[in-house]
Design a protein around this nucleic acid. Structure first.
Length: 561
DNA sequence: GCCGTTTTCGGCCCGACTGTTTTCAGTCG
């Protein structure tokens, strides 16, 4: 939160929910939802210009947003808030309870919160109520309990680990994950697995040790809640419609709606079974065939958010997103000299095995007192690194540091010391709750420090644990663009920092990026793929990412040459 | 409410599963 765009988007989403609950037209509901999403993803601050420039925002929504920007709400939202208590909206977050039932329960029985619903069920007040049998009551209680305990989304690393475990456990002819995981979203609500295989696959799935509860099971789909709380859906699909199923279940929903609209206009039908004209199959076996039939190249999953990718694909101007193979080096890593767990040589060996052309060791600097770093230790490490260079002929070893951005924006060492390091990352590690204006000044001061090249994990968020710091990101990114300060995309999956919406905003200001692992151990080097996913979601190309560049170009840029 | 090689009106994606309303509505993705 903090950006006007996000706040306005949240207000429109709330309005869409309330509008739906009060019997509003479903197509209008969708208009509000689409506008909210478009505003949240718009690279410019909507408070600085005409919100009508945002696709999906017409006259009526623009008026609501303008009123919201003036006074933090708008009349129609106030009216609906007066009709529907906050707790009733919260009830729709209970699994299996949607807007219709929530509003029914409120009007007929006065139930106005998840807690009140649980109490009403225990008191037997739902017994005999039309549409609410014993099974429904049981499911609602379960849903309330689950919302109280493990209702949160998990970060990409947790979801990917579980998905890979599920895939390894099932003897299928063909099996893959789809959904938001394949689109590399930074948080995942559930996992979709598609498989080609015998019907017995479902039984095998249900018996796996990671299954805590079978939620639903049919011939085509089985849903389970796993022991880590995350839901996994397994769908068995015909081999002939593999591509259609992958396309369909990868989503996003909004991307698929766009494709279907195109199909309808041609008299075609696109479903998880294929692209059809009447009974004739136009394409079904591969995603490439389906996209080709619609006149566009295959769209990489992280771009499938209806954020302009369909139009770009049709025009042939789809960007070629940065890939893991483009990455030539890692510019933010640690060793056991500070809080890493692996010795220098192990980290270097692992980096060399990944085929990097360069690799920066960036242990912490003295101001992070608990790391017990000193300039002597850093210089000793530099000497070791220089000595080891001959053992890594294909990989240039860079000696770096991860500085601490103090509350006033200053860093650990003076410029003459900093200039001795090849790579200087500077990050916030404390005073996370500074007021917005102080935090903004702090980050801008770091950007303006000629000794700082990269701002590490800029928002410092930890998914599920720590919110992002509050700063005026427009101002910070403008300063970064002006000073050629690189913004890091920290690939560590619980950080995922910058998030992709802020990457887009930063790019808008001409900022370059560095996708780094922030590895504290050898396996962490592999987290880089998550950072690449974030970058792809923000439409970054290799040109935007400095650690896809050859070393001489990188160093010249760091010299602000 | 938005939008336009169906352009100022008329359409806006599609299917599976569940529970319960004996023919379907609600929810979900």
């Amino acid at each position: 939160m903090g950006r006007a765009n996000d706040e306005a988007a949240a207000a429109l989403e709330e309005y869409a929910d309330l509008f739906a609950m009060t019997g509003g037209d479903a197509f209008r509901v969708r208009s509000y939802q689409k506008a909210a999403k478009a505003i949240a993803g718009f690279p410019e601050d909507i408070s600085g210009g005409d919100v009508r420039r945002v696709a999906g925002v017409g006259e009526a929504i623009a008026k609501k947003v303008e009123e919201f920007l003036l006074r933090g709400s708008f009349r129609q939202l106030d009216d609906l808030r007066a009709q529907v208590p906050e707790g009733v909206r919260a009830m729709t977050r209970i699994a299996s309870l949607g807007p219709k039932k929530a509003v029914f329960l409120f009007h007929e029985l006065g139930i106005d919160s998840p807690d009140a619903l649980a109490e009403a069920i225990h008191q037997g007040r739902l017994t005999g109520v039309r549409g609410f049998g014993a099974k429904t009551e049981e499911n609602l209680l379960k849903g309330i309990e689950q919302m109280r305990t493990s209702g949160e989304r998990v970060h990409l690393g947790v979801a990917m680990g579980l998905a890979e475990r599920v895939i390894a456990s099932l003897p299928a002819e063909k099996i893959a994950y789809a959904g938001s995981l394949r689109r590399m979203k930074d948080t995942i609500g559930d996992i979709d697995i598609l498989a080609v295989g015998p019907v017995s696959l479902m039984e095998t799935f249900k018996e796996q040790p990671y299954v805590a509860e079978v939620i639903a099971s049919g011939a085509h789909k089985t849903s389970v809640r796993t022991t880590v709380g995350l839901q996994v859906d397994l769908r068995v699909v015909p081999a002939a419609s593999w591509g259609a199923a992958m396309q369909y279940f990868t989503g996003s929903k909004e991307h698929n709606v766009r494709l279907r609209e195109m199909c309808v206009k041609r008299g075609w039908k696109l479903s998880e079974y294929g692209l059809f004209e009447g009974d004739r199959v136009i394409a079904a076996e591969t995603e490439e065939e389906i996209y080709a039939a619609l006149g566009m190249p295959w769209v990489p999953p992280p771009l499938r958010e209806d954020g302009g990718e369909v139009e770009a694909a049709l025009r042939g101007t789809l960007p070629e997103p940065v890939t893991l193979a483009d990455i030539k080096g890692d510019l933010h890593t640690h060793t056991d000299l500070t809080d890493g767990i692996a010795p220098l040589e192990q980290m270097l060996d692992a980096a060399a095995a990944r085929g990097y052309a360069y690799y920066a060791v960036t242990d912490h600097a003295p101001d992070l007192v608990m790391q017990r770093m000193t300039l002597d230790k850093a210089l000793e490490q530099r000497g070791r690194l220089r000595g080891l260079q001959a053992s890594y002929p294909g990989m240039r070893l860079l000696h770096g540091t991860e500085l601490n951005i103090g509350p006033d924006g200053s860093v650990d060492w003076p410029l003459e010391v900093l200039e001795g390091f090849d790579v200087r990352v500077a990050s916030v590690h404390s005073h996370f709750t500074q007021p917005r204006d102080e935090m903004t000044r702090r980050l801008i001061a770091a950007c303006e420090n000629p000794g700082v090249q990269i701002i590490g994990h800029p928002t410092t968020r930890k998914i599920g644990k720590r919110p992002p710091v509050d700063a005026d990101w427009e101002a910070v990114f403008a300063a970064a663009g002006r000073t050629c300060t690189v913004m890091e995309i920290d690939a560590y999956p619980d950080r995922a920092d910058l998030p992709s919406d802020l990457i887009r905003l930063a790019r808008h200001h001409g900022v370059k990026f560095s996708i780094d692992s922030d590895a504290h151990a050898v396996p962490h080097l592999g987290n880089l793929r998550y950072g690449v996913g974030l970058a792809q979601r923000a439409w970054l190309t290799g040109e935007d990412v400095v650690n896809t560049w050859p070393l001489d170009r990188l160093l010249a840029f760091f010299g602000r040459a």
